[in-house]
Nucleic acid binder design. Structure first.
Lengths: 355, 355
DNA sequence: CTGTTAGCGCATTCAT
DNA sequence: ATGAATGCGCTAACAG
C-alpha cells in the first residue's frame, strides 16, 4: 500500500542501495542516476520511513529541546532561536541533513523531565538541549546525571543552555547565564539610589536560577555593609512561582511586613509586573514611592509603564549558540562551560529613594 | 553493546514476545511473569528502541504541534496546554500509552511548515496539531491539503486549533477562534465611545487571522454607516508583522496620515503595546487623546499601564481541547468545526472620544 | 560508481 | 498464557 524505497528503486531501475545513497547524499552517485532516482521519488510521491531509517542507521534526526514552561516567553525565545539554528541549516541535499528539532515542555516537573529524556533516548535522538534553571534536589540531580550520561554513551549530544553544569560533570557543553552577577549588579544599582529596605520576591525554591539570583542580591547587601542580619533578610524575602500572581501576592505581604519598604526586586519581569500592580492597588507610585526591578528583559519590559529596570539576558544569542553546539557546528566553550553576560538595563521603574 | 529486548528476555527467562507483550500491556500476561520481566527491565536498565518499535508496529508515539512563532506567548500558551493534555494522560501501563508531544516552530514560513509535516510523516506521527492562522496563498493551501490528506491516509490524526478549516475539507477536526466576531465587537465598542477616525494596524497580509479580524472591524464600520469609503479605510489600515516594532512604526505613520485619529486597533496585544509607545513618544496620552485596543488578551495585557482593552481568546482551553481531540479522548465537534468565543475585555486603554 | 547481502530491534502472526 | 518464526523498510559493509 505505502510506497517504499524498493518501489522507487524499481521505477528508477537501480538498486535500493543507490536510492538510499541519493536520498542521504552522503555518497557519490552519478548525476544522471541521481536525476532518475529523484524523478522516481517525485512521481511516486515517496516519503522515507523514518523509523526504518533510524533503526538501520542506529541514529535519528530528532533533536529535543527541553523547557520548563513554554508559555513563558523566556523559554519560547530561547527555544525558537535554538530551533532556528538547528533547522535552518539544511544540508546541501534537499533530503538529507534535515533535523527535526522539537520542543518538549516539562512544566517544571522533574518526573516529566526524566520521562522526556527517556522518550528521546527511545528515539535515539541526535541531540538534547536542556534549557533554564535546574532543580537542586540531590536525587533528581543524580537521576538526571545518570540519564544524561547514558544518552551521551548512546551517541546523543547533550547541551545545557541557561543551566549550570551538573556537579562533577564537565562532559556536557554548557552555556550558563550569569544570574549571580546580574542579581548582584541589579541590587547595587538600587543601593546606589539610596535604597536600604529592599524586598525580594524570589522564584521557586530549590531552583538554581532562584538561588543564584538571590545570592547575588545578598552579596551586594553584604558588600554594602547592610546585610541587616539573616533574620531581616528572611523577613524581606518571599518565594513563589514565576507567575504574575505571585508577584502580586508577595508584594502585598511584603508591604504588610515592612511598610517602609522602598524597593522590590522580582524573580523575573513577569513577577515584577505583578509587584507593580500590587503597589498601585496599595496607592503607591512606581518609582516615586517604591522602585521595582525585574530580570530577563523580556520584550514587554520596555513597553510597560513605567518601563522596567531589569537584567538583560541574551536569550536569542544563547539559544542560537546552543543550537549550533548541538549540531556540532560550534565547539564546546573552553572548560566545557561559558558564562554569558547579564547586564543591568536601567529604565523608569527604579529611582532615588523617596524623601 | 546496547541492551535489547532479547537481553531482557534472556534475563527473565521468557521469550522476547512475552517481554514485548508486557511492555506494551495490550495482551494478557501472567502477573508473576510480568513481575519477573519488569524486574529484568529494571536491572538491565533497558530502554525500548523507538525506531525498531515503530517500524514493526507501523506507528509511533510522536505527536507534532506546529506553531508559527513559539517566542510569541500566544503560541506558547496554546502549545503548552496541548502538550499537557497529550502527555498528561499516561496510560495505565507505565511504559505504554506515553506520547511524545513535541512543538515544531515554523517561524511562519510555508516551506518549513511543509518540511515539518514531511518530517512528521517520515516519523509516522500519531497525530499532528496545526495552530494559529494559516497562509492564504492558493498554492500553499493546495500543498498543505494534499500533505494533510496523505497524513490522514497514513493513519495520522490531524487537528486544527485556532485555524480555519481548509476549503472543501471537513475531514479534519477544527477549532477556530471567532476572529471576525471578536474584531467586530471590539470596533463596535470603540464606535460606542464616539470614535470615528480609527486607525487599524493589521497583521501580516495573506493570513486568515489578519483578514478575519480586519473584516470584523470593517463590518462594524459599515454597520455604523461610517464606512468612509474604501480609499479612506485603506488610508487608515497598515499591515505589518506581529512584532511590537510594527505597532510602533505603523502608529507613527498613521499619525502622519491622519493627525485627528482618536483610536487605534492593533493586530494583537504586542502590536498594541508598540502603538502605545509611539503615541507616548508623540506626546499623546492613552486613552485621553487616543484609545488603543489589542487582541488575544495575553497575560501582560492586564498589567500594562493603562491596562489594555482587548479581545480574550480562550487559548488554554482551546489548546487543551485540541490536545484531547488529537488523542481521540474527545470527539470532533459537530460538523467537524467548532467556533470558540472571542469576548471583548474593556480596560483602561480605551475611553470616550476626546473633545 | 553501483549492485548484493545482511542484519538493525521489535511486534506479530501462528502454534502450543 | 507463552514460545517460535517471520518481516517491517532501510543502511552499511562488502564486492565488483
Amino acid at each position: 500500500m505505502t510506497v517504499t524505497l524498493a518501489d522507487v528503486a524499481a521505477r528508477a531501475q537501480v538498486s535500493p542501495a543507490t536510492v538510499s545513497r541519493v536520498l542521504n547524499g552522503n555518497y557519490p552517485v552519478a548525476a544522471v542516476t541521481r536525476e532518475r532516482v529523484l524523478r522516481a521519488v517525485d512521481e511516486l510521491d515517496y516519503v522515507l520511513n523514518g523509523p526504518a531509517s533510524s533503526l538501520a542507521a542506529a541514529t535519528s534526526d530528532l533533536v529535543g529541546i527541553l523547557v520548563n514552561d513554554i508559555a513563558d516567553p523566556f523559554f519560547g525565545i530561547i527555544a525558537g532561536a535554538a530551533q532556528s539554528a538547528i533547522s535552518g541549516q539544511a544540508g546541501a541535499g534537499r533530503c538529507g541533513g534535515e533535523k527535526l528539532a522539537v520542543i518538549c515542555n516539562t512544566g517544571g516537573s522533574p518526573e516529566r523531565e526524566l520521562t522526556y529524556l527517556t522518550l528521546l533516548q527511545r528515539q535515539r535522538a541526535a541531540a538534547v538541549l536542556l534549557t533554564g534553571g535546574a532543580l537542586e534536589d540531590p536525587a533528581h540531580i543524580a537521576a538526571m546525571s545518570a540519564k544524561l550520561r547514558k544518552l551521551t554513551a548512546a551517541g546523543t549530544k547533550v547541551v545545557l543552555c541557561g543551566r549550570p553544569p551538573l556537579p562533577a560533570d564537565t562532559a556536557f557543553a554548557a552555556l550558563a547565564f550569569d544570574n549571580r552577577g546580574g542579581g548582584r549588579r541589579l541590587t547595587e544599582h538600587l543601593l546606589a539610589l539610596g535604597h536600604r529596605l529592599i524586598g525580594y520576591v524570589a522564584g521557586p525554591p530549590e531552583r538554581t536560577t532562584t538561588r543564584h539570583r538571590l545570592e547575588g542580591h545578598r552579596a551586594a547587601l553584604v558588600a554594602a555593609g547592610i546585610s541587616g542580619g539573616a533574620s531581616d533578610q528572611d523577613r524581606l524575602t518571599l518565594h513563589g512561582s514565576y507567575a504574575r500572581r505571585c508577584g502580586y501576592d508577595a508584594t502585598a505581604e511584603l508591604l504588610r511586613r515592612e511598610p517602609a519598604l522602598t524597593a522590590i526586586v522580582a524573580a523575573n519581569d513577569t513577577v515584577a509586573l505583578g509587584a507593580c500592580a500590587a503597589l498601585r492597588d496599595h496607592g503607591l507610585r512606581v518609582p516615586q514611592d517604591v522602585s521595582v526591578a525585574g530580570f530577563d528583559d523580556l520584550p514587554f519590559a520596555m513597553d510597560v509603564m513605567p518601563a522596567l529596570t531589569t537584567v538583560r539576558l541574551p536569550l536569542v544569542e544563547a539559544g542560537a549558540r546552543a543550537g549550533r553546539m548541538a549540531m556540532g557546528r560550534e565547539g564546546a566553550p573552553p572548560g566545557g562551560i561559558a558564562m554569558v553576560g547579564a547586564e543591568v538595563v536601567v529604565r523608569g521603574s527604579t529611582g532615588v529613594r523617596r524623601g
